[in-house]
Each structure stands twice: as structure tokens, then as C-alpha cells.
Design a protein around this nucleic acid. Structure first.
Lengths: 165, 165
DNA sequence: ATTAACTTTCAATATTTATTGAAAGTTTAA
DNA sequence: TTAAACTTTCAATAAATATTGAAAGTTAAT
């Protein structure tokens, strides 16, 4: 397969995967592009390569920086900013899971805790409700623990875990 | 907190969580409702409770059945179908991860394999490309293995894993 | 075979989310 | 300090996604 074709296929696929995981297409595609690029790219180059507008490129680059998976680089004598992403996939996975934990697991745990002390005239309903939300909270906390461990771990932790399985 | 309030809060929160995980709001809310309901519900009851249309309810109930996390029940002498979902959270997590593995991990692995034999005049680009996509494939396969093991495992597997950590 | 009770479908519509591009803001070399 | 080179913002617009509801389809008791 030709390089250009392979590259486009990859960017495309990564974008699609991103979409079904709550990462928007442009963001996932910018990330894909930076992943396979051997050198840092400017906003201009990213716009050009992905055929997206300046605003779109800018916003999503900033989002990726926010997520801690893209870094900017200044070069002396150059006004432009150059962007790159780490090529260590495990590190990337750690950053992403850390981010999602904060944004998604924390809020749902908060709700599950809030609703734990439900009271109602209907005994059966209240009991069922407490059972289910309690289980859910328990499970979520456990998963949360694993993700936290993963996102804070040294590089080998996950591989060691995989080896055990 | 009153039962009604707690229930609505839960359905709401579960819907929001679903949205950021590629499960649409109605689908997640129907699931939440069935989770906390002590008895199976009809389409009618679901529509009423969540204030959604017949078509919407029907389509999402079918999707949940497709995903293997909701079951229908016929009752003799009754024309209506009753729906329920298992209350075992771990089992639910297994079903969901199985489904997503099939729908999302398989396709991306396929692409990563396809593009592995890239050829191009530019040595540096091709090499970087192969490195990154190769790593990605490797990592994805490992994660895939874990998810598969999880989704096929007996109930205790995951708890045992958690205990180890 | 009929029909009432239900389920499914799908084109129209509404809602949500992403994208654009032009204007405003900022930085830095001279 | 200026002004060219760049970055950021955001209201308008487009695109994607979800929802409705009415009509068509199906089923099962009589």
C-alpha cells in the first residue's frame, strides 16, 4: 500500500474510533496525524493536511493540549508554534483514562452517593433502588480504582498486569 | 431524598453518562429505568415514564435487546411484551464490553493490519509510520485480549483481578 | 377470516454537536 | 512603537444524530 493511502486510511479510522468514544472527529484526526508525523507540525500544516478551518484546528489542538496528550514547541527565530504528540501508546492511554476518570466517573459517583439515602413510602421500590444503585456505586468505585492506578502507575504496571492474565 | 427525585436524578445521570460513551440518551435512560424497576415494564410504561415517543422507545428497546442487556418476556393471556434487564452489574459490564469489542476494536485492528505493509519513497516517513501503527496494533491487541477475557470470564475473574491490585 | 391489540418502520422534524471564517487579540523582531 | 505574523474567539452555518408520530405490519383470540 502506498504511504499516502495508508496514512489517510489511518487518519480516517482513528477519527471514526474517536467519534464513538466521545472524542470529536477533528480532534482524533489531528492526534492521528501528529502520531505518525516524525516531526512537529504547525497549525497551518494540520489545516492543510486535514482540510479543516483555522478555528477548528486551533480549538482542537488546544483541547488536545488540555488533555495533556499534545505539546507545543517554540523555535527560536520562528513565530509559529509547532505541535507534537508523544509516541508512547501506553502513556497516551494513561492520559486519556485519567482525563475521562475526572470528567465522567467522578460525576456519576457523586450522583450515586447523593441518591443513596432515598426514602419512600413504597418499601419494595426503595429497596430495589438501593440495591441496584448501591451495587453500581460499588462496581464504579472498583473500576475507578483500577483506572486511577493505571493512570498514575509507572510504565510497567500495565504490562505486568497483562502478563498475569 | 424522595424516591421520585432520586429515581429521576439517577435516570438523568445515567443518560448523560451514556451520551459520552456512544450510547444514546434514550437508550441509556431506558436501561436505567429497567435497572431500578423491580418488575418488567411494557413499552407503554417506558414511554410514559420517560416521556418519549413510541417509535423511540421501540427502537431503543430493540437496540438494548440486540446488545444482549435487555430481555423480553411474554405472559400468557397478555399481548404486551414485558422488558427487564439483569441486575448483575458485572454481567452487564461484560455484555457491554463484549459488544464494543466486536463493534469497535475489531475494525480498528483490521485497518491497522491492512496498513502495516506500507511502502513509500520517503524512508523516514514510512519507518515512523510503521513504528507507530505497529505499536498501536500491539497495544490494541493486548487490550483486546483483556476485554475478551473479561467478557468471557466467569463471574469471579474480575473480582479476583481487582483483589490482586 | 376477522379484528382488536399490539409492534415496527420511516420520512419529517427537532435537537445537538461540529465547523467555518472573518474579526479581534496577541506577540515579537526591527 | 509599529506592523507583520501569528493565535484566539465566537456568531453564523452546516452536519450529524435523535426523536416523533402516523401509517403499515403483525399476531392471536374469537
Amino acid at each position: 500500500m502506498e504511504y499516502i493511502e495508508a496514512k489517510n486510511k489511518f487518519i480516517q479510522a482513528w477519527g471514526t474510533l474517536g467519534s464513538s468514544w466521545g472524542i470529536n472527529k477533528a480532534m482524533a484526526q489531528i492526534h492521528a496525524l501528529l502520531l505518525i508525523s516524525p516531526n512537529p507540525l504547525t497549525t497551518e500544516e494540520i489545516m492543510e493536511e486535514l482540510k479543516i478551518s483555522r478555528g477548528n484546528a486551533n480549538m482542537n489542538i488546544r483541547a488536545l493540549i488540555d488533555w495533556g496528550i499534545v505539546e507545543k514547541e517554540h523555535r527560536i527565530g520562528e513565530r509559529k508554534e509547532f505541535f507534537s504528540t508523544g509516541k508512547d501508546i501506553l502513556e497516551l492511554a494513561r492520559q486519556v483514562s485519567k482525563e475521562r476518570r475526572k470528567r465522567e466517573i467522578d460525576p456519576i459517583l457523586k450522583v450515586l452517593e447523593q441518591i443513596q439515602d432515598v426514602s419512600g413510602e413504597n418499601e419494595k421500590l426503595s429497596k430495589e433502588f438501593k440495591n441496584v444503585t448501591g451495587d453500581l456505586r460499588n462496581f464504579t468505585q472498583k473500576v475507578d480504582g483500577v483506572i486511577e492506578k493505571f493512570s498514575k502507575s509507572d510504565k510497567n504496571w500495565f504490562y505486568k498486569l497483562l502478563m498475569k492474565l
